[in-house]
Design a protein around this nucleic acid. Structure first.
Lengths: 204, 204
DNA sequence: GTCTATATTCCGATAGAC
DNA sequence: GTCTATCGGAATATAGAC
Protein backbone atom coordinates (compact mmCIF):
# COMPACT_ATOMS: atom_id res chain seq x y z
CA UNK A 1 0.00 0.00 0.00
CA UNK A 2 2.95 2.30 0.44
CA UNK A 3 3.78 4.19 -2.72
CA UNK A 4 7.36 4.87 -3.60
CA UNK A 5 8.15 8.50 -2.96
CA UNK A 6 11.88 8.86 -3.03
CA UNK A 7 12.42 7.77 -6.64
CA UNK A 8 11.24 10.02 -9.42
CA UNK A 9 8.27 8.61 -11.29
CA UNK A 10 8.80 7.43 -14.84
CA UNK A 11 6.85 10.38 -16.10
CA UNK A 12 9.04 12.80 -14.25
CA UNK A 13 12.16 11.10 -15.53
CA UNK A 14 10.85 11.38 -19.07
CA UNK A 15 10.08 15.05 -18.70
CA UNK A 16 13.50 15.76 -17.33
CA UNK A 17 15.21 13.76 -20.05
CA UNK A 18 13.10 15.40 -22.73
CA UNK A 19 13.88 18.87 -21.45
CA UNK A 20 17.56 18.12 -21.55
CA UNK A 21 17.54 16.67 -25.05
CA UNK A 22 15.20 19.24 -26.57
CA UNK A 23 17.19 22.11 -25.15
CA UNK A 24 20.42 20.61 -26.35
CA UNK A 25 19.35 19.67 -29.87
CA UNK A 26 16.19 21.63 -30.56
CA UNK A 27 12.89 20.14 -31.66
CA UNK A 28 14.13 19.08 -35.12
CA UNK A 29 17.44 17.67 -33.91
CA UNK A 30 16.10 15.69 -30.97
CA UNK A 31 15.39 11.97 -31.39
CA UNK A 32 12.86 10.04 -29.38
CA UNK A 33 15.56 7.43 -28.95
CA UNK A 34 17.85 10.02 -27.35
CA UNK A 35 15.17 10.92 -24.87
CA UNK A 36 14.42 7.28 -24.09
CA UNK A 37 18.11 6.58 -23.51
CA UNK A 38 18.49 9.64 -21.33
CA UNK A 39 15.50 8.53 -19.25
CA UNK A 40 16.70 4.93 -19.10
CA UNK A 41 13.62 3.47 -20.77
CA UNK A 42 12.63 2.52 -24.31
CA UNK A 43 10.82 4.37 -27.05
CA UNK A 44 7.54 2.50 -26.67
CA UNK A 45 7.20 3.74 -23.13
CA UNK A 46 7.64 7.31 -24.24
CA UNK A 47 4.61 6.95 -26.44
CA UNK A 48 2.72 5.34 -23.62
CA UNK A 49 3.10 8.47 -21.53
CA UNK A 50 3.11 11.07 -24.29
CA UNK A 51 1.29 10.22 -27.47
CA UNK A 52 3.62 11.97 -29.87
CA UNK A 53 6.85 13.86 -30.09
CA UNK A 54 4.89 17.03 -30.73
CA UNK A 55 2.90 16.54 -27.55
CA UNK A 56 6.00 15.94 -25.54
CA UNK A 57 7.70 18.99 -26.93
CA UNK A 58 4.65 21.07 -26.22
CA UNK A 59 4.67 20.01 -22.59
CA UNK A 60 8.33 20.77 -22.16
CA UNK A 61 8.11 24.03 -23.91
CA UNK A 62 5.06 25.35 -22.09
CA UNK A 63 6.41 24.48 -18.72
CA UNK A 64 9.92 25.71 -19.41
CA UNK A 65 8.99 29.01 -20.98
CA UNK A 66 6.19 29.82 -18.59
CA UNK A 67 8.50 29.45 -15.63
CA UNK A 68 11.22 31.27 -17.44
CA UNK A 69 9.61 34.53 -18.43
CA UNK A 70 10.32 37.02 -15.69
CA UNK A 71 7.45 38.98 -14.25
CA UNK A 72 8.60 42.08 -15.96
CA UNK A 73 5.22 43.79 -15.85
CA UNK A 74 5.26 43.82 -12.08
CA UNK A 75 8.45 45.80 -12.21
CA UNK A 76 7.26 48.07 -15.00
CA UNK A 77 4.04 48.92 -13.20
CA UNK A 78 5.58 49.28 -9.77
CA UNK A 79 5.77 52.72 -8.28
CA UNK A 80 9.51 53.34 -8.20
CA UNK A 81 11.96 55.50 -10.09
CA UNK A 82 13.15 54.63 -13.58
CA UNK A 83 16.64 53.87 -12.42
CA UNK A 84 15.34 51.51 -9.78
CA UNK A 85 13.22 49.73 -12.35
CA UNK A 86 16.20 49.30 -14.61
CA UNK A 87 18.18 47.88 -11.78
CA UNK A 88 15.41 45.43 -10.88
CA UNK A 89 14.96 44.25 -14.44
CA UNK A 90 18.67 43.68 -14.99
CA UNK A 91 19.22 41.81 -11.76
CA UNK A 92 16.13 39.71 -12.35
CA UNK A 93 17.17 38.77 -15.85
CA UNK A 94 20.71 37.80 -15.03
CA UNK A 95 19.71 35.88 -11.94
CA UNK A 96 16.96 34.02 -13.76
CA UNK A 97 19.15 33.07 -16.68
CA UNK A 98 21.93 31.88 -14.43
CA UNK A 99 19.48 29.28 -13.14
CA UNK A 100 18.54 28.13 -16.69
CA UNK A 101 21.40 29.20 -18.92
CA UNK A 102 20.20 27.32 -22.00
CA UNK A 103 16.73 28.77 -22.14
CA UNK A 104 17.54 31.93 -24.10
CA UNK A 105 18.86 30.06 -27.13
CA UNK A 106 16.02 27.59 -26.94
CA UNK A 107 13.43 30.35 -26.91
CA UNK A 108 15.14 32.40 -29.60
CA UNK A 109 15.08 29.39 -31.88
CA UNK A 110 11.44 28.61 -31.45
CA UNK A 111 10.50 32.25 -31.83
CA UNK A 112 12.54 32.36 -35.00
CA UNK A 113 10.69 29.37 -36.44
CA UNK A 114 7.19 30.59 -35.74
CA UNK A 115 7.15 34.02 -34.16
CA UNK A 116 3.44 34.74 -33.86
CA UNK A 117 2.22 31.40 -32.59
CA UNK A 118 5.06 31.02 -30.20
CA UNK A 119 5.03 34.45 -28.65
CA UNK A 120 1.30 34.40 -28.10
CA UNK A 121 1.49 31.09 -26.27
CA UNK A 122 4.49 32.25 -24.34
CA UNK A 123 2.91 35.32 -22.81
CA UNK A 124 -0.75 34.49 -22.93
CA UNK A 125 -2.08 37.97 -22.34
CA UNK A 126 0.63 39.27 -20.10
CA UNK A 127 2.96 40.58 -22.72
CA UNK A 128 5.43 43.09 -21.29
CA UNK A 129 3.91 46.56 -21.37
CA UNK A 130 6.80 48.24 -23.03
CA UNK A 131 4.86 51.39 -23.78
CA UNK A 132 4.52 52.11 -20.09
CA UNK A 133 8.24 51.89 -19.62
CA UNK A 134 8.70 53.98 -22.74
CA UNK A 135 6.49 56.72 -21.33
CA UNK A 136 8.49 56.85 -18.17
CA UNK A 137 11.73 57.02 -20.12
CA UNK A 138 10.48 59.85 -22.27
CA UNK A 139 9.27 61.64 -19.21
CA UNK A 140 12.69 61.51 -17.60
CA UNK A 141 14.29 62.66 -20.82
CA UNK A 142 12.00 65.68 -20.90
CA UNK A 143 12.70 66.42 -17.25
CA UNK A 144 16.34 66.39 -18.20
CA UNK A 145 17.36 63.79 -15.63
CA UNK A 146 18.82 61.46 -18.25
CA UNK A 147 20.32 61.88 -21.69
CA UNK A 148 18.01 61.83 -24.68
CA UNK A 149 17.54 58.25 -25.88
CA UNK A 150 14.97 56.34 -27.88
CA UNK A 151 13.19 54.09 -25.37
CA UNK A 152 13.64 51.09 -27.62
CA UNK A 153 17.40 51.52 -27.65
CA UNK A 154 17.44 51.64 -23.89
CA UNK A 155 15.30 48.53 -23.61
CA UNK A 156 17.44 46.73 -26.16
CA UNK A 157 20.51 47.63 -24.17
CA UNK A 158 19.03 46.21 -21.01
CA UNK A 159 18.15 42.92 -22.63
CA UNK A 160 21.35 42.67 -24.65
CA UNK A 161 23.70 43.14 -21.76
CA UNK A 162 21.73 40.74 -19.56
CA UNK A 163 21.12 37.91 -22.00
CA UNK A 164 23.81 37.81 -24.68
CA UNK A 165 26.73 36.72 -22.49
CA UNK A 166 24.86 33.47 -21.84
CA UNK A 167 24.02 32.90 -25.49
CA UNK A 168 27.61 33.37 -26.49
CA UNK A 169 29.18 31.59 -23.55
CA UNK A 170 30.81 28.80 -25.59
CA UNK A 171 32.28 31.27 -28.04
CA UNK A 172 33.46 33.77 -25.48
CA UNK A 173 34.94 31.02 -23.40
CA UNK A 174 36.76 29.64 -26.39
CA UNK A 175 38.16 33.06 -27.23
CA UNK A 176 39.23 33.90 -23.70
CA UNK A 177 40.24 30.44 -22.52
CA UNK A 178 38.33 30.99 -19.31
CA UNK A 179 37.32 28.05 -17.16
CA UNK A 180 33.68 27.40 -16.39
CA UNK A 181 34.24 28.53 -12.87
CA UNK A 182 35.84 31.80 -13.91
CA UNK A 183 33.08 32.46 -16.40
CA UNK A 184 30.46 31.85 -13.77
CA UNK A 185 32.22 34.20 -11.42
CA UNK A 186 32.02 36.86 -14.11
CA UNK A 187 28.29 36.28 -14.51
CA UNK A 188 27.85 36.57 -10.79
CA UNK A 189 29.48 40.00 -10.89
CA UNK A 190 27.30 40.90 -13.83
CA UNK A 191 24.14 40.77 -11.76
CA UNK A 192 25.16 44.08 -10.28
CA UNK A 193 27.21 45.46 -13.13
CA UNK A 194 24.69 45.45 -15.95
CA UNK A 195 22.47 48.07 -14.40
CA UNK A 196 25.54 50.13 -13.55
CA UNK A 197 26.62 50.12 -17.19
CA UNK A 198 23.18 51.12 -18.32
CA UNK A 199 22.85 53.89 -15.80
CA UNK A 200 26.31 55.24 -16.55
CA UNK A 201 25.42 55.35 -20.21
CA UNK A 202 22.29 57.46 -19.76
CA UNK A 203 23.39 59.64 -16.85
CA UNK A 204 24.11 63.23 -17.70
CA UNK B 1 31.97 27.78 -77.86
CA UNK B 2 30.72 30.72 -75.84
CA UNK B 3 29.97 29.80 -72.27
CA UNK B 4 26.98 31.30 -70.59
CA UNK B 5 28.09 33.93 -68.14
CA UNK B 6 25.06 35.96 -67.22
CA UNK B 7 23.01 33.16 -65.67
CA UNK B 8 24.12 31.66 -62.39
CA UNK B 9 25.43 28.14 -62.78
CA UNK B 10 23.44 25.32 -61.28
CA UNK B 11 26.08 24.87 -58.64
CA UNK B 12 25.84 28.51 -57.63
CA UNK B 13 22.07 28.33 -57.50
CA UNK B 14 22.30 25.28 -55.27
CA UNK B 15 24.73 26.96 -52.93
CA UNK B 16 22.54 30.00 -52.65
CA UNK B 17 19.42 27.95 -52.05
CA UNK B 18 21.20 25.78 -49.50
CA UNK B 19 22.47 28.79 -47.62
CA UNK B 20 19.00 30.20 -47.41
CA UNK B 21 17.39 26.98 -46.22
CA UNK B 22 20.13 25.98 -43.77
CA UNK B 23 20.20 29.41 -42.19
CA UNK B 24 16.47 29.47 -41.89
CA UNK B 25 15.93 25.96 -40.53
CA UNK B 26 19.31 24.83 -39.25
CA UNK B 27 21.12 21.67 -40.25
CA UNK B 28 18.66 19.31 -38.57
CA UNK B 29 15.52 21.08 -39.74
CA UNK B 30 16.53 21.56 -43.37
CA UNK B 31 15.31 19.08 -45.99
CA UNK B 32 17.10 18.29 -49.22
CA UNK B 33 13.73 18.67 -50.90
CA UNK B 34 13.45 22.23 -49.60
CA UNK B 35 16.83 23.08 -51.04
CA UNK B 36 16.01 21.46 -54.37
CA UNK B 37 12.73 23.38 -54.57
CA UNK B 38 14.41 26.63 -53.66
CA UNK B 39 17.01 26.06 -56.37
CA UNK B 40 14.39 24.99 -58.91
CA UNK B 41 15.87 21.55 -59.49
CA UNK B 42 15.29 18.05 -58.13
CA UNK B 43 16.90 16.11 -55.33
CA UNK B 44 18.94 13.84 -57.57
CA UNK B 45 20.79 16.79 -58.98
CA UNK B 46 21.72 17.96 -55.53
CA UNK B 47 23.50 14.70 -54.94
CA UNK B 48 25.14 14.98 -58.31
CA UNK B 49 26.84 18.21 -57.25
CA UNK B 50 27.26 17.50 -53.55
CA UNK B 51 27.50 13.91 -52.45
CA UNK B 52 25.65 14.23 -49.17
CA UNK B 53 23.73 16.63 -47.04
CA UNK B 54 26.67 16.74 -44.64
CA UNK B 55 29.01 17.76 -47.43
CA UNK B 56 26.66 20.46 -48.60
CA UNK B 57 26.22 21.83 -45.13
CA UNK B 58 29.96 21.85 -44.64
CA UNK B 59 30.44 23.95 -47.76
CA UNK B 60 27.77 26.43 -46.81
CA UNK B 61 28.92 26.69 -43.30
CA UNK B 62 32.57 27.22 -44.10
CA UNK B 63 31.92 29.86 -46.66
CA UNK B 64 29.21 31.65 -44.73
CA UNK B 65 31.02 31.81 -41.42
CA UNK B 66 34.39 32.63 -42.93
CA UNK B 67 32.96 35.61 -44.75
CA UNK B 68 30.94 36.58 -41.77
CA UNK B 69 33.55 36.83 -39.08
CA UNK B 70 34.76 40.40 -39.08
CA UNK B 71 38.45 41.03 -39.31
CA UNK B 72 38.56 41.93 -35.70
CA UNK B 73 42.26 41.26 -35.33
CA UNK B 74 43.11 44.00 -37.79
CA UNK B 75 41.31 46.44 -35.56
CA UNK B 76 42.77 45.04 -32.37
CA UNK B 77 46.31 45.21 -33.69
CA UNK B 78 45.97 48.57 -35.34
CA UNK B 79 47.78 51.50 -33.82
CA UNK B 80 44.93 53.65 -32.60
CA UNK B 81 43.46 54.57 -29.24
CA UNK B 82 41.24 52.20 -27.30
CA UNK B 83 38.17 54.33 -27.83
CA UNK B 84 38.74 54.39 -31.55
CA UNK B 85 39.10 50.63 -31.60
CA UNK B 86 35.85 50.23 -29.74
CA UNK B 87 34.14 52.49 -32.19
CA UNK B 88 35.52 50.56 -35.13
CA UNK B 89 34.52 47.20 -33.75
CA UNK B 90 30.98 48.28 -32.95
CA UNK B 91 30.35 49.93 -36.29
CA UNK B 92 31.83 46.95 -38.11
CA UNK B 93 29.69 44.45 -36.24
CA UNK B 94 26.41 46.25 -36.67
CA UNK B 95 27.05 47.01 -40.32
CA UNK B 96 28.08 43.45 -41.04
CA UNK B 97 25.10 41.91 -39.31
CA UNK B 98 22.67 44.26 -41.01
CA UNK B 99 23.81 42.69 -44.28
CA UNK B 100 23.29 39.12 -43.00
CA UNK B 101 20.85 39.38 -40.12
CA UNK B 102 20.28 35.65 -39.68
CA UNK B 103 23.89 34.64 -39.36
CA UNK B 104 24.23 35.24 -35.61
CA UNK B 105 21.53 32.76 -34.66
CA UNK B 106 22.83 30.26 -37.17
CA UNK B 107 26.35 30.46 -35.77
CA UNK B 108 25.25 30.42 -32.15
CA UNK B 109 23.29 27.24 -32.80
CA UNK B 110 26.07 25.37 -34.50
CA UNK B 111 28.55 26.46 -31.88
CA UNK B 112 26.15 25.29 -29.22
CA UNK B 113 25.88 21.86 -30.79
CA UNK B 114 29.58 21.22 -31.17
CA UNK B 115 31.64 24.04 -29.73
CA UNK B 116 35.19 22.82 -30.23
CA UNK B 117 34.97 21.44 -33.74
CA UNK B 118 32.94 24.34 -34.94
CA UNK B 119 34.98 27.14 -33.51
CA UNK B 120 38.25 25.73 -34.71
CA UNK B 121 36.96 25.44 -38.25
CA UNK B 122 35.43 28.87 -38.04
CA UNK B 123 38.58 30.77 -37.24
CA UNK B 124 41.30 28.51 -38.54
CA UNK B 125 44.20 30.12 -36.78
CA UNK B 126 43.03 33.70 -36.75
CA UNK B 127 41.07 33.59 -33.56
CA UNK B 128 40.50 37.09 -32.16
CA UNK B 129 43.43 38.09 -30.00
CA UNK B 130 41.40 39.15 -27.04
CA UNK B 131 44.38 39.27 -24.73
CA UNK B 132 45.86 42.12 -26.75
CA UNK B 133 42.71 44.14 -26.37
CA UNK B 134 42.60 43.20 -22.71
CA UNK B 135 46.11 44.54 -22.19
CA UNK B 136 45.20 47.83 -23.73
CA UNK B 137 42.08 48.08 -21.60
CA UNK B 138 44.00 47.35 -18.43
CA UNK B 139 46.60 49.89 -19.45
CA UNK B 140 43.99 52.61 -19.83
CA UNK B 141 42.45 51.67 -16.52
CA UNK B 142 45.82 52.05 -14.83
CA UNK B 143 46.42 55.36 -16.54
CA UNK B 144 43.10 56.41 -15.12
CA UNK B 145 41.58 57.43 -18.44
CA UNK B 146 38.61 55.08 -18.06
CA UNK B 147 36.76 53.56 -15.16
CA UNK B 148 38.01 50.28 -13.74
CA UNK B 149 36.43 47.37 -15.59
CA UNK B 150 37.24 43.74 -16.22
CA UNK B 151 38.25 43.53 -19.90
CA UNK B 152 35.90 40.61 -20.45
CA UNK B 153 32.91 42.62 -19.28
CA UNK B 154 33.81 45.38 -21.67
CA UNK B 155 34.19 42.98 -24.55
CA UNK B 156 30.93 41.26 -23.66
CA UNK B 157 29.21 44.62 -23.66
CA UNK B 158 30.51 45.46 -27.10
CA UNK B 159 29.31 42.17 -28.57
CA UNK B 160 26.03 42.13 -26.68
CA UNK B 161 24.90 45.59 -27.73
CA UNK B 162 25.93 44.99 -31.33
CA UNK B 163 24.53 41.52 -31.89
CA UNK B 164 21.60 40.84 -29.58
CA UNK B 165 19.10 43.25 -31.15
CA UNK B 166 19.28 41.19 -34.32
CA UNK B 167 18.89 37.87 -32.52
CA UNK B 168 15.84 39.12 -30.69
CA UNK B 169 14.33 41.06 -33.55
CA UNK B 170 11.13 38.97 -33.82
CA UNK B 171 10.54 39.16 -30.09
CA UNK B 172 11.31 42.84 -29.73
CA UNK B 173 9.18 43.65 -32.73
CA UNK B 174 6.30 41.66 -31.31
CA UNK B 175 6.56 43.49 -28.01
CA UNK B 176 6.87 46.93 -29.50
CA UNK B 177 4.62 46.50 -32.53
CA UNK B 178 7.24 48.17 -34.69
CA UNK B 179 7.18 47.74 -38.45
CA UNK B 180 10.12 46.20 -40.25
CA UNK B 181 10.98 49.57 -41.64
CA UNK B 182 10.97 51.27 -38.26
CA UNK B 183 13.06 48.50 -36.76
CA UNK B 184 15.58 48.81 -39.54
CA UNK B 185 15.75 52.54 -39.02
CA UNK B 186 16.58 51.86 -35.39
CA UNK B 187 19.37 49.50 -36.39
CA UNK B 188 20.74 52.10 -38.73
CA UNK B 189 20.99 54.54 -35.83
CA UNK B 190 22.58 51.85 -33.76
CA UNK B 191 25.68 51.76 -35.93
CA UNK B 192 26.74 55.00 -34.30
CA UNK B 193 25.00 54.64 -30.97
CA UNK B 194 26.49 51.41 -29.69
CA UNK B 195 29.99 52.76 -29.34
CA UNK B 196 28.56 55.92 -27.74
CA UNK B 197 26.81 53.81 -25.11
CA UNK B 198 29.95 51.87 -24.42
CA UNK B 199 32.13 54.91 -24.18
CA UNK B 200 29.69 56.73 -21.94
CA UNK B 201 29.64 53.74 -19.64
CA UNK B 202 33.40 53.63 -19.15
CA UNK B 203 34.18 57.33 -19.25
CA UNK B 204 35.12 58.89 -15.96
C1' DG C 1 23.64 17.60 -66.72
C1' DT C 2 19.13 16.65 -65.65
C1' DC C 3 15.45 13.88 -65.00
C1' DT C 4 12.19 9.71 -63.05
C1' DA C 5 12.09 5.85 -60.44
C1' DT C 6 13.78 3.18 -56.80
C1' DA C 7 16.67 1.66 -53.15
C1' DT C 8 18.16 2.42 -48.39
C1' DT C 9 18.20 4.33 -43.98
C1' DC C 10 16.21 6.50 -40.23
C1' DC C 11 12.68 7.55 -37.06
C1' DG C 12 8.12 8.16 -35.09
C1' DA C 13 4.49 5.36 -33.83
C1' DT C 14 1.80 0.94 -32.88
C1' DA C 15 0.82 -4.13 -31.73
C1' DG C 16 0.94 -7.38 -28.61
C1' DA C 17 3.35 -10.38 -25.03
C1' DC C 18 4.43 -10.32 -20.22
C1' DG D 1 3.72 -0.34 -16.89
C1' DT D 2 7.26 -2.01 -19.45
C1' DC D 3 9.19 -4.53 -22.87
C1' DT D 4 10.40 -6.61 -27.94
C1' DA D 5 9.24 -6.61 -32.48
C1' DT D 6 7.53 -4.38 -36.32
C1' DC D 7 5.04 -1.17 -39.29
C1' DG D 8 4.75 2.86 -42.19
C1' DG D 9 6.14 7.14 -43.67
C1' DA D 10 9.61 10.40 -44.56
C1' DA D 11 14.16 11.69 -45.86
C1' DT D 12 18.69 10.69 -47.84
C1' DA D 13 20.89 8.65 -51.43
C1' DT D 14 21.56 5.85 -55.85
C1' DA D 15 20.46 3.67 -60.60
C1' DG D 16 19.74 4.34 -64.97
C1' DA D 17 17.26 6.56 -69.04
C1' DC D 18 17.56 10.64 -71.85
Amino acid sequence: MVKKQKDATTQQRILEAARKVFIEKGMAGARMQDIADEAGINKALLHYYFTSKDMLFEQIFQQASARFIPHINEVIESDVSLLEKIEHICVNYVTLIMSKPFMPLFILNEVHKQPEAFLQRMWGGQKPKLHKLAEQIEHEVKRGTIKPIHPMHLFMNIMSLSIFPFLAKPMLQYMSKMSDKAYWQLMEERKELVSKFIIDSIRK
